[in-house]
Amino acid sequence: MKHRNTYIIPYVLMTPAAVMLGLFILYPMLMNIITSFQSYSLVQIGRPFVGFANYKALLTDARIWSAIKRTIIWTLVNLCFSLALGLGSALLLSTRFRGNNIIKSLILIPWILPSVITGYTWSLMLNEDAGIITWLLKTLQLVSRDFSWFRTGALSMTAAMMANIWRAFPFFSLMIFAKLSTIPNDHVEAALIEGVNKRQMFTYVSFPYIKPVVVSCTYLVFIWTFNAYDIIKVMTNGGPAELTTTMSILVQKEAFQYFSLSNAATMSVIMFTLMTLIILLAYLLLKLVRKVKA
């Protein structure tokens, strides 16, 4: 029983998707690389080919190095804290305390709330005059009376990180919790018969079981955080004095404030290469660890 022309139908069905992806994802990806070898700005006529000149100029540009440094710090801190908080709260939920179902259904609110709103909300809560968190810190005399989160680079970065961690950790919580609730009974039973304590239960039973989910969630959150734009843009706009400018903020500004398109394209190619390299490195590292263990 076969349809006529069966061999062509799958391709026909794929066509709309292929056209959209080709035109708006693949072609732009390619164009991006080509643009990075041209001199192209909205304030000049023509776009001559300049070879590696953009890369050479940018690699000696202090702005890009400090942006790379900031992006890496931003990603690392966010990832560590969200993972720790997420794992912790997943374990907390898995104790099945009374009311854990309520928290379980509420915990995705931070993740569903649009990130721009998260940014504004934390700006308000950390505001110098109207911010409840700042007020609390001042009342407890933990900070001086004229304290502001947004005057120095380090504190502004911390403020944006808090907002981002609040947004990202529930993703870890829920994914890890979902996996934790599927641990086969016999694993747990065997461990109980062996008389393991709570810590051993985690290191020998739970953790090995949830590890794949932890790894794939970390991979996803890494990509999201590395490229994060909304929260930083809304809370600090890269300031003060460009001290919180990460790679994505830099690329966007270069393109839409200074209209230097070839520069922005080059920066984004560097950014993407860096991200891919880090992922590749982490992958090889994981493989190595597995080999050493085996």
């Binding site: 990806m29 991006n32 643009t35």
Partner: peptide, 8 residues
């Protein structure tokens, strides 16, 4: 990432 596609 979207940032990479932004300029093109």
């Amino acid at each position: 990432p979207v940032v990479v596609l932004l300029v093109p």
